[in-house]
Design a protein around this nucleic acid. Structure first.
Length: 584
DNA sequence: TGGCAATACTG
DNA sequence: CAGTAT
DNA sequence: GCCA
């Protein structure tokens, strides 16, 4: 596209999932077996650090790994051998925790090439990538010259470890491409040395969440939880404005970097007015907030929360149901007439939702025709959808989707956004933003992938589908060309992560010029997002919505070429996604 | 006292 | 338009 | 419920 990167900087990123590794790993249901004979490294689990490699080297190495190694890992902790072109410790540490690296064989790309040529694993000695590691590695596996040295620990503990380290980068971006073989333009890949957030330039007293660093967990988390209860209650009761105020107070507190022990500290914080100041004070001396406790234990609050946890039921419907005297899910099911049999049949079948309720018989509906088929289905899904998704599984879902997508259109790029990208150890759903270097390949892709996933038994429900909105007809290339689909997804049984749990999966397809705008837009958190838009409007007279950034007075459209350019455009300091957790 | 993000879809 | 969802 |  426009700018070309000076150097051959490619991508990196751990969660650099997919790539060809999984592309070959068999199509979901087909019982793939028989690892091709003649592998040079049949027992080696490899991880490739992409940083400092150009795209052709990446595809070469991925190709070799995929063909000759036992496995090409997505996470360094799963691997025995780490291949990297990086030579300095400091730099490597940006991609792999030092503690982890010390327990692995960290070697140069040449090791892989030579080993393959040699037909079997060569000693690491001559290929040590980092000088500081020389001793460790050698002593780490004294005798295994050729054997892949399963002696290094780790590899099993992948799970927990990756969830716990929400330390900036490393888990930052989960961008992946379906390529290697085809080069992907650099501007669609995440920056090679991940950007660092300069906390000192941020200001926790700012009125805008997009100027504050908000970690996943803050020093005043307990207080935040209390206030968030009140916020939820306000929202459920339909007091949206009040709820907004609590949400803002919460996000201001999330960015305050010290434990609050005196009211003096609070004075400088925005959005803490008379009412909330009182609540904070109460919390400081009592360790809790009375109103929050009351709400928590209130039957009404519990019922309303429960009801609105069902997809399609919001505050209003929840209240109505409550007023009807309903209190539990069982009662809801009775109310909506869920034959516990109907439910299971709906559950296992690959049902198509969307515009189902055709049969709106002019028959009886007296009380209200609200509920209906749709809510029934949502009720059946609730149990599964209430279960959080661990990062590992989020990544697996990403790989599976990319694998299918690649078969429809090679060369796509994607980023897993949402809470996952902000570093949450568990997500309630998975959001993915996709694009393709060739804008013309995007249109209709969303629908096609969803259909393919559906046919493959991976998408059971489509809550809604939106396609091309040729708003500005006139020759318009891009613009409102964002497609999205909200689905219910289930991993194929062939996946090692398969647990039969249905998950919410949102897919967003964006033309390449709008990719980074979309990624920013979908990375959240909600308050961060709102304030970003607010800031854009207040300070720059720009409109920032799901389909792009435009200047209000002349409607000029902007196409940031990187995520950081979005921040630059708005004159904001860069904030890593893991510091955009402005919600409770 | 007005404004609080901004849209898309369904009924 | 109200309600829900992103 | 808070702010300009």
């Amino acid at each position: 596209m426009p700018f070309k990167r000076p150097a051959p900087l490619p991508s990196q990123s751990e969660s650099q999932s997919s790539s060809s590794a999984n592309l070959l790993s068999g199509s979901s249901k087909r019982p793939r077996l028989s690892p091709p004979p003649g592998k040079a490294l049949p027992n080696v689990k490899l991880f490739i650090v992409q940083a400092k490699l150009n795209t052709s080297a990446i595809s070469e190495l991925f190709g070799l790994a995929e063909q000759h190694a036992k496995r090409l890992c997505n996470k360094p902790e799963d691997a025995d051998v780490i291949v990297t072109a990086i030579g300095m410790r400091r730099r490597l540490e940006r991609h792999i925790p030092w503690e982890l690296a010390k327990h692995k064989a960290v070697v140069t790309p040449q090791w892989l090439r030579d080993s393959v040529k040699n037909g079997s694993s060569l000693p690491y000695d001559n290929y040590i990538a980092i000088q500081d590691l020389q001793d460790t590695i050698v002593q780490n596996c004294p005798e295994c010259n050729c054997k892949p040295c399963a002696c290094s620990p780790s590899s099993t503990s992948s799970y927990a470890s990756s969830s716990l380290r929400h330390s900036q980068e490393s888990l930052a971006s989960a961008t992946s491409a379906t390529s290697p073989p085809t080069a992907i333009p650099a501007y669609l890949l995440p920056p090679s040395p991940p950007l660092e957030t300069d906390i000192t330039k941020l200001d926790y007293t700012s009125r805008y969440a997009c100027q504050r660093a908000s970690p996943l967990v803050c020093p005043n988390q307990a207080l935040v939880h209390e206030l968030d209860i009140i916020r939820q209650s306000r929202a459920l009761e339909g007091e949206v404005r009040s709820a907004l105020s609590y949400a803002r107070a919460v996000s201001a507190l999330k960015a305050y970097p010290h434990k609050i022990t005196s009211m003096k500290q609070v004075e400088k914080l925005p959005y803490i007015g008379t009412k909330i100041t009182g609540l904070v004070e109460e919390f400081i001396d009592g360790g809790h907030i009375n109103e929050a406790e009351t709400i928590r234990s209130s039957v009404r609050f519990q019922a309303l929360s429960l009801f609105s946890s069902i997809y399609g039921i919001g505050p209003t419907t929840a209240q109505r149901l409550y007023d009807l005297g309903l209190r539990s899910l069982d009662e809801l099911e009775v109310y909506y007439g869920v034959d516990s049999k109907t439910q299971t049949s709906i559950d296992s079948g690959i049902v198509e939702v969307e515009k189902e309720s055709k049969r709106r018989h002019a028959k009886d509906e007296g009380d209200e025709g609200l509920g209906d088929t749709w809510i029934k289905i949502a009720l059946g899904l609730r149990e599964d959808l209430a279960i959080k998704i661990p990062r590992d599984e989020v990544e697996e879902m990403g790989r599976v989707v990319m694998r299918e997508l690649d078969q429809l259109e090679h060369g796509c790029v994607s980023t897993i956004v949402g809470g996952y990208r902000r570093g949450k150890p568990e997500s309630s759903d998975v959001d993915m933003v996709f694009t393709h270097p060739d804008a013309s390949k995007i249109k209709g892709l969303c629908k096609r992938v969803v259909q393919r996933l559906h046919e493959g038994g991976m998408v059971s429900h489509v809550m809604h589908l939106s396609g091309f909105h040729a708003h500005n007809p006139l020759r318009t290339t891009h613009w409102d060309s964002l497609e999205k689909s909200l689905t219910v997804f289930i991993l194929p049984p062939s996946s090692t992560f398969y647990r039969g749990t249905r998950r919410r999966l949102d897919l967003i397809f964006s033309p390449p010029e709008l990719y980074w705008t979309a990624v920013v837009g979908w990375s959240g958190s909600i308050m961060f997002q709102r304030d970003l838009r607010q800031w854009a409007k207040d300070k720059h007279g720009m409109k920032f919505d799901s389909s792009g950034i435009t200047r209000r007075y002349d409607s000029k459209v902007f196409f940031p070429k990187t995520e950081k350019e979005v921040f630059d455009l708005f004159e904001l300091e860069w904030i890593d996604p893991t510091l955009r957790n402005a919600d409770a």
